[in-house]
Design a protein around this nucleic acid. Sequence first.
DNA 1: AATATATGAATGAACG
DNA 2: CGTTCATTCATATATT
Lengths: 181, 181
Amino acid sequence: SHAFAAAHQPVCSIALPGQVMTDEQLETLRRQISVYATICQQLVEMHKAIMAQQGSASGLWLGPSIPFDSSLHSMGHKLTSRQRWTPSQTQLHILERLFEQESGTPNKQRIKEITLELSQHGQISETNVYNWFQNRRARTKRKQQLGGANNGDSELDTDVDIPEEKKGKIEADSTSYTFDA
Amino acid sequence: SHAFAAAHQPVCSIALPGQVMTDEQLETLRRQISVYATICQQLVEMHKAIMAQQGSASGLWLGPSIPFDSSLHSMGHKLTSRQRWTPSQTQLHILERLFEQESGTPNKQRIKEITLELSQHGQISETNVYNWFQNRRARTKRKQQLGGANNGDSELDTDVDIPEEKKGKIEADSTSYTFDA
DNA sequence: AATATATGAATGAACG
DNA sequence: CGTTCATTCATATATT
């Protein structure tokens, strides 16, 4: 029930005059906002459901009052989004070439070299290079294992709701977002 | 599947790495968050009112009875999954705090203590704690080595003194965003 | 617009 | 411990 306070309090506390936000703080903000988005979404759905039921029961309380959707939409477009690195065409080619030439993951030194070279073709960091090789290798492997038979499907979840009974650890203290109406 | 996520697009495309926010941008953030806070407040009030009214009107309608979960499916599918340990927010905070206080990897005894404490905030094992410290340290170090260049950052979220809220993803088995009326 | 896929990034666990 | 793997999360792009 005090989820709101918890969610927006911190934001103000760091917003000291003359100070600036770090990327981490910004990321945190983004997440906090995301939480609000989720909560609002649920509440709206909830409200609709209730209204629907209510409508068939009694015509009362057609509480229009608040234009939720417009409110939500009004704020949707300036916030959040930390863009992720996207390799340029040139960079991608080079990376792809290196991947098939060199075997294994480049070590730190090699990463530095590669990054240096690639930085001539666009913004890039050593972490980007590192991640790229990690992902490239992992996904290549996955494709092979899984690939033999059928189509070329994505790596993603495959949505088959196989009822696994494992589903471990329930959050014991996740009372933060629960509304005990 | 990330339908609503699309609603709150760019938080701040100006937030390039190494850059900081202007007061103006920060003010915008605050305002936008404020909108969410307001909307949530209103919705909750409405909900309470409706529930109260419903309750006195007919003895029916006790309990959820409406699958609000349906709204959850729009954001994170798959109630299954999660085979690996995921620290709860509380646990994470504690771990983070311990990490900066204590020096070096906790010994066996310390691990046991920590595990015991953390187990009050969710499922956890000594191995989890051990791994967490290992990883935390390793990644902190590696970040220093790699982080030098350009866009350099990612891997490891440096902590901010903001009690961060759970990420915007809905997990059936972790943070509960469900409204159990 | 809604959904699906591709892919950069994060992270728990395992390996040497 | 440092490094690597496996899986998942999040978002940009493509498709319908």
